[in-house]
Amino acid sequence: MSHPLRALLVLVLALAGCSDPGPDWHGKDIRNLMPDLAFTLTDARGQSVTADQTAGKIRLLYFGYTSCPDVCPTTLADLRQAVRALPETTRDDIVTLFVSVDPERDSPERLASYVRFFGDNVIGMTGSLTELRDLTRRYRTTFGYDEPDEHGNYDVSHSSAVYVFDRSGEARLLLRPNSMPPGQIRDDLEQLAREQPPS
């Protein structure tokens, strides 16, 4: 409890049911619930990548793995569709950060070819298990591996949510693409982009 007072304030606001009468979102407002965007991982060129490199853009953080049979491709496709529906000027302000939680199988090359399929503004990244555990703990999610079958294939459990960070890196929204049409994602992203014009 690093900021007990802040926690108390959040609690009181939650109790009063008046936590910021600001704009309505289709996604879940996670302002003040989650920490700012911060990570140090390895990108699809095998180079170190940090959150600062995409500062000034709206970032969509999503955990998955490239062998994912349905959830990950669907989610990434939905995000692509939502971003494509935005005005052209806003489109480049949005970056999708795809974090593979399966570094064993997801080599940089594999990640590169996978994310290319979902558009230009998708950055594939992964890291060591320790780095990934630290990052997932920071955003209060987890991942786990199933037993491999006879071909060595295995399922990976991971978060189904997309974490949205604004241009300054503050956590803003939790999107759940499997229960949210791309149109609603688009609306939320547009509202967020309008709120803070690019500097």
Binding site: M1, A7, L11, R140
Partner: peptide, 18 residues
């Protein structure tokens, strides 16, 4: 709704358990 927030926020989570 409170449970959802408590599981997302580290501060609320510790406040809840304590």
């Amino acid at each position: 709704p409170v449970h959802f927030d408590a599981m997302l926020s580290r501060q609320l989570y510790w406040t809840m358990n304590w």
